[in-house]
Nucleic acid binder design. Sequence first.
DNA 1: TGAGGGCTGTAGCTGTACGA
DNA 2: TCGTACAGCTACAGCCCTCA
Length: 275
Amino acid sequence: MSLRGAATALTRDRSRGRFGNALQWHFGLESHDGEAKLDWEDRIEIKLVTVWARRDGRLVCDKLKVCDLGVDPWHKLSNVLWVFVDRVSRVVIGHRFFRLAGPARERLARSWGADPHFQRPDLFVEARQSGDQIAPAYYLAASWFRREGLFDGIEPLFGFDGAWWAAARRRARGREPAIALSWQGAERARCGHCGGRIRRSPEYQGFVGFFPGLHELPLAPSCAARGHVILEGERLPRCHVSSVEEQLRDIQGLTPPEQLWRLTDRVAEPDDHEH
DNA sequence: TGAGGGCTGTAGCTGTACGA
DNA sequence: TCGTACAGCTACAGCCCTCA
């Protein structure tokens, strides 16, 4: 399923953590970032991990904030539902239940005595500047996810060129590139916002299913001041709780607020939570 | 390519002013 | 005294630049 519609409806563009909040909203949970207790009845911590494919197709993610320095990271990581979401389409592509115990806990505990500069610990404290204050917090290294096998069996959806994305956003004064979908290897896609045609940028190759696009004339003023990217539609997984139309609309950011649907309204929760 | 770490826009909280 | 509106401040953590 795509998280874009919920994120757009719940928060403003580029709000930090908006896709994590969208996921919690879909689960029917209150968002309580920064609290010591776990997200679901203080039993399960839900962590959204944004992932993408490198040029060689390998799945990667960025480092991930665990909690603030004043919160116990061992409790936060004791029982985690990792949810992996594609960086470009914001489609959830997989999940893992993870219990920090046994060898996994011992491996992570070694970080405690490791030198942060020379030994690259998996769990480390980073002090971020926040206004005039320093806000230290616990982070997990990106490489930890691969070493712990959390990516095993998770197929990357799309590649992501961060340099192109950032440049396109700068040109559009902060607006994210619009997403269009192409099918059966077509060089062109239809813009969901104005109906115009978008063709793949010919000099651009190398990222799985990800093609920066050139919007052809005519185009709406809103499209003229915005970058466009074409994604291969066949790569999208089938969502079993929404229609294909809903899914495609959501990925392109075209879901009207009145048609926004919620996972918890469509999937009945068992009375015993399957305990 | 990956690690390190600074940057940044938003949400939410808090304090203050003002009118009923 | 209470309720409301607004401004300012802080926390947040994803984003992205630099460098080895």
